Amino acid sequence: MSSVHNSAVPTLIGSVQRALRLLEAVASHSGGAPAKQLAREAGLPLPTAYHLLRTLTHEGYLRREGGVFVLGAAAGRLAVGGLQQKRRSMILDSLAHFRDAVGAPVYFAVFREGEIEVVGVSDTQSSPACEEWADFRETGHAHAIGQCLLGQLDDKTRKDYYERHPVEAITPYTVRDMRSLEQRIESQGRMQPVVERQEYSLGTVCAAIPITAGDTAATMAISLPLHQEGELLYVVNRLRSEVGALLSTLSFSISI
């Protein structure tokens, strides 16, 4: 006698399904709708709809205003979260494109709220990204990403960063003091690649290019093992060419 197994059939939670149908019904009415109308549109008995509407209102997903239900703040956060995830996916897809085009790990970072933030990294098993052994946010003076971002800031903002994250050597090749770093930043041509050799990680060389992202300082960077140092400028110039071509058709969002 054979037996039938339904392990592949997912277990569905009916109350969750009904609550989602109510949320969809409310979302379809910009000015809100009363409980009876929502129950009818969601295909629910009125007592069930009332119970779920009270629960959703208590949790902040709905608000009751003048006898009608409208979406609440919690539902708005869901929408924002979905948009943020979509933007993040777009950035990661773009980084993967650049990675394949230049044959090296690619990084995208911004300077936001006084700190260096690496938004995304794309690498491969054969060409791994540089290991973050010292916090990127606190060691901006020592890596190409940070030096490129710091070079885009005004003097006051840069000074504030130095006060919170002092310049100090983390490898034998790291820039030694703030004065030396400032001299280097001042000597860099505007919108030119920033190159760093073993200042952050021994055995690794890096280069970064400034990215135009509204009023926010942003950068894209690549890293290579030391034995490929001779290819560094070629690869970063290839990256700059690829970024320039794609940015003409892609709005590179940093609001994530």
Rank of each mutant, 00 (worst) to 15 (best):
H5Y: 09
N6F: 13
N6I: 14
N6L: 12
V9C: 13
I13K: 02
S15C: 05
Q17F: 15
Q17K: 14
R18F: 07
R18V: 00
A19M: 10
R21H: 08
R21F: 03
L22C: 09
E24G: 00
A27T: 01
H29W: 05
S30Y: 01
P34G: 12
L38M: 06
E41D: 13
A42Y: 01
G43T: 04
L46Y: 03
A49V: 06
H51D: 03
R54H: 05
H58S: 09
G60A: 08
G72A: 15
G72C: 13
G76D: 14
L78H: 04
L78V: 15
G82I: 00
L83E: 15
R87L: 08
R87S: 06
R87A: 04
A96F: 00
H97M: 02
F98N: 06
V102F: 09
V110Q: 02
V110A: 01
F111V: 04
F111S: 07
R112M: 06
E113Q: 03
E113Y: 04
E113H: 02
G114M: 02
I116Q: 03
E117R: 11
D123L: 06
E131P: 00
F136P: 03
R137M: 03
T139Y: 15
H143I: 15
I145R: 02
C148R: 03
C148D: 08
G151W: 02
D154M: 10
K156F: 15
R158W: 15
D160F: 00
Y161F: 07
Y162F: 13
R164Y: 02
R164L: 02
Y173N: 03
Y173I: 01
R176P: 04
M178R: 03
I185F: 09
I185E: 04
S187I: 01
R197H: 13
E199I: 13
Y200T: 00
L202E: 05
C206P: 01
C206S: 14
T212M: 05
G214P: 12
A218L: 08
T219G: 09
T219A: 11
Q228K: 14
G230F: 10
Y234F: 11
R238E: 01
R240A: 06
E242N: 06
E242P: 00
S248F: 13
